[in-house]
Simulated scan of single mutants.
Amino acid sequence: MSLALLLIGYLEIRLHPILNAMATAKVTNTVTQTLDGAIANEISSVGITYGDLISMEKDSTGRVTALTSNMAELNRLRTSILSAVVTAVDTLDQEQLAIPVGNLTGINFLSGRGISLPVEVVAVGSAHAEFHNQFDYAGINQTRHQILLDVSVAVDILLPGDTLRTEVTAQVPVAETVIVGAVPDTYLQLGT
């Protein structure tokens, strides 16, 4: 009897970190796919364009002098994306989040075999989304402006005898444009 308890204790100590790592990886992958799908669906259904989010101010010669954000539209888009993300993550099916017992042994032959242990995603602890701008060099007189949305979702994972919390993040380009400036008379490139 005590030998059986020692064996069970040994297996618990050995398999617990493996189960935690596998559950975290599986849930992270599933939530990432769900997050990306929900964000892509929401952006395409809204039909948002760069011009809806940013207006360009130009001087009398046609040069861009300022970019002005439409904060009301950005906030509306952020709210609708967050709502879609939370709904999508809340509807994750527990069946697709099951780990075969053979995977826990570390033996290749048993990988993917045996009964499946369900990994339950409880609730979205929090979801957060934030816009930021990125400007990149796109040529001698060109600048690429991207509006990116960083989304992070904290998810609780219920395992037999343990609860894990993981955070899944995604960065999605929402809109972009290339701003063309005046071509310089002279171009000098120093260095490599």
Rank of each mutant, 00 (worst) to 15 (best):
M1K: 02
M1R: 01
L5V: 10
L5N: 11
I8H: 05
Y10K: 09
Y10R: 06
E12G: 12
I13P: 00
R14K: 07
R14W: 09
L15M: 08
A21D: 10
M22A: 08
T24G: 15
T24K: 08
T28N: 08
N29F: 08
T30L: 14
V31F: 11
V31P: 01
Q33Y: 13
D36L: 14
G37R: 04
G37P: 07
A38E: 08
A38D: 06
E42C: 10
S44V: 10
V46R: 06
Y50C: 07
G51W: 15
D52Q: 02
D52G: 00
D52V: 00
S55N: 06
M56E: 15
M56L: 15
S60R: 15
T61D: 12
R63T: 07
V64G: 01
N70G: 05
N70Q: 14
N70F: 07
A72G: 04
N75Y: 07
N75W: 06
R76M: 15
R78N: 09
R78V: 00
R78M: 13
I81P: 02
L82V: 09
T87W: 02
T87V: 12
T87S: 15
D90H: 03
L92A: 02
L92S: 07
Q94Y: 07
Q96V: 05
L97G: 05
A98C: 13
I99V: 07
V101T: 09
G102T: 06
G106C: 05
I107N: 02
L110T: 01
G112M: 09
R113I: 11
R113A: 15
I115V: 06
S116R: 07
L117W: 07
P118Q: 01
P118R: 01
V119E: 01
A123D: 08
G125S: 10
A127S: 09
A127N: 03
A127I: 05
A127C: 06
H132A: 07
H132V: 03
N133R: 11
F135V: 05
D136W: 13
A138L: 04
A138N: 02
T143L: 14
R144A: 11
H145E: 03
Q146W: 15
I147Q: 02
I147H: 06
L149W: 00
L149Q: 00
L149F: 01
D150S: 04
S152W: 01
A154R: 10
V155E: 00
D156G: 00
L159A: 02
L159P: 01
G161R: 04
G161P: 11
T163Y: 11
T166A: 12
V168Y: 11
T169I: 11
A170L: 08
Q171G: 03
Q171M: 12
P173G: 03
T177P: 00
V178W: 02
I179E: 01
V180F: 14
D185W: 09
L188F: 11
Q189W: 10
L190A: 10
G191I: 03
T192H: 04
